[in-house]
Design a protein around this nucleic acid. Structure first.
Lengths: 100, 100
DNA sequence: TTTATATTTCGCAAAATTACGAAATAATTT
DNA sequence: AAATTATTTCGTAATTTTGCGAAATATAAA
């Protein structure tokens, strides 16, 4: 029926990143982390967001899974930071689309 | 429990756009339309993508719903074009995030 | 070693997404 | 009016996402 049975690498990668961005909680977190290239704690985030700890944890897990953030254990906290390498990759792939 | 019970307009808008981009088919379509600011037909797209007509139609509907494309009836075809106003809005909101 | 703190994992439910084929719609041609 | 063409809508099913509370984990403090 159809000729094309798969997508280009670029399209797939962009869809992966877009999916990671497709929830207000995850946008909020990434915006916060990228804004001053800082890190943050799950405990701080849960006070700023209308979701419970376990739900926040799932969103953090998703961002970790696509590689956009990484968690450093800093007992008794876990400090989450932007993975700048992956973040640059995201920025490049989006810039390509956005700048025609 | 939580202090914050809602998200900023920017965060919500970006999540909405990111969701629209969160599928290879929709990225493919938007890339195609934005690349030369052109239009395209459902019938052309279905030959380039590994999905059936009815599924493509659903993806087009979603893009229409968020306002990123618009369909002009041009019997017996429907010509889909980028909604440049909405596309600029998307670009602006993403640029803000991507350029720190 | 018990207690307290910070966070995650598990199990579950509700809702949304993705995909398809069949039927419907709408305009054109025969 | 019947047949054709391009596309959408409907009904359905499988999968994924989102959210929660309870239990588990891991470390530090008492």
């Amino acid at each position: 029926m159809n000729n094309r049975t798969n997508y280009s690498e670029d399209v797939l990668l962009m869809a992966k990143y877009a999916k990671a961005l497709a929830h207000p909680v995850r946008i909020y977190i990434l915006k916060k982390l990228s804004k001053m290239n800082s890190c943050c704690y799950s405990g701080d985030l849960v006070d700023e967001l209308p979701i419970k700890r376990s739900t926040l944890s799932q969103h953090l897990k998703e961002l970790k899974y696509v590689g956009l953030i990484q968690g450093e254990i800093e007992p008794p906290f876990i400090k989450y930071c932007l993975n700048t390498y992956e973040w640059e990759k995201l920025k490049n792939i989006f810039s390509e689309l956005l700048n025609d």
